[in-house]
């Protein structure tokens, strides 16, 4: 967008970019530096050997995978229906879902606490998986529907003439085209599920059920504020989402833009 003709102005632009990026980097430097302070890598070993960290990681993986599965299946099928099929009162259903986008998590706490306690689901991963998936689905459906709208219907008509029924059409023709939006949905859902804090804080009490976002608190309680251990745990917690983003960066950005720009 900036047209820079002279070498001087080009270097100036590069300098401005570097200066604007620096503040985003500094807290990350502080985190990594702190995690290696004192005994260095030994911090990570000690943190891992508490035995608590593997459990928390296992629970977070289980939680994230379940939420991703629910959101992926739910949004891919529903967005297909909303975009390509005939449904009476379609927009009413759609807007009822979209209103849920405005819903803050805190509003779910009291009703779900009472209900989950009755159903004996309190202090199980289900108590976190279900509301997280329900809160994530509307946005995923919105993104996916916008993406599906960009897929020409002629493509479907052609294969219908070839005698394919709707599920076959969905499976063989549509689904293979949805990789960019699917990447965006999977990465966003992973970020949301892995990073969720309030619902696990309230609904997961037993240590064997807890997830990675509750690790700092555990270490503050356990090591009376040993910063290096807390930061080592923070670095470990940050790795999966960072990796997922970096590895899927291209597809993620393409899908996000295709779904969000209308």
């Amino acid at each position: 967008m900036f047209e820079v003709r002279h070498r001087g102005s080009r270097m100036l632009l590069q300098l401005v970019l570097a200066l604007m990026t620096l503040p985003f980097l500094l807290p990350l430097v502080e985190m990594v530096k702190g995690a290696f302070a004192g005994v260095g890598f030994q911090n990570f070993v000690v943190v891992w050997q508490t035995g608590v960290v593997p459990t928390f990681f296992k629970n977070s993986i289980l939680l994230s995978m379940s939420v991703i599965a629910l959101v992926y299946v739910g949004s891919m099928t529903a967005a297909f229906g909303f975009s390509k099929l005939r449904i009476r009162g379609k927009e009413i259903y759609f807007w009822m879902m979209i209103v849920a986008l405005t819903l803050p998590e805190v509003i779910l706490l009291s009703p779900l606490f009472v209900t989950f306690t009755k159903l004996q689901m309190y202090d199980t991963l289900f108590a976190v998986i279900l509301p997280l998936a329900a809160l994530q689905l509307p946005f995923a459906i919105l993104l996916a529907r916008n993406f599906y709208d960009g897929i020409p219907s002629e493509l479907m008509d052609a294969s219908r003439i070839d005698g394919a029924n709707v599920p076959q059409l969905f499976w063989h023709v549509i689904l293979p085209l949805t990789r960019p939006i699917a990447s965006a949905i999977v990465v966003l859902t992973l970020i949301n599920a892995w990073n969720s804090y309030l619902l696990p804080l309230v609904f997961l009490q037993d240590r064997s059920n807890q997830v990675v976002t509750l690790l700092p608190q555990f270490f503050i309680g356990q090591y009376s504020n040993d910063q290096t251990k807390i930061l080592a745990a923070a670095v470990m917690t940050a790795i999966p989402t960072t990796l997922a983003y970096v590895l899927m960066q291209k597809n993620f950005e393409r899908g996000l833009s295709a779904g969000a720009l209308k």
């Binding site: 990026t21 985003f24 980097l25 807290p27 990350l28 502080e30 985190m31 702190g34 990465v187 970020i191 892995w194 990073n195 804090y197 990675v212 976002t213 509750l214 690790l215 700092p216 910063q227 807390i230 930061l231 923070a234 917690t237 940050a238 989402t241 960072t242 997922a244 983003y245 970096v246 960066q249």
Partner: peptide, 18 residues
């Protein structure tokens, strides 16, 4: 990537850092 990484990190993870 540097500018986007903060978006993928949990506030709960970053709170002790901040």
């Amino acid at each position: 990537v540097i500018i986007f990484i903060p978006t993928v990190l949990a506030p709960a993870t970053m709170a002790p850092v901040f």
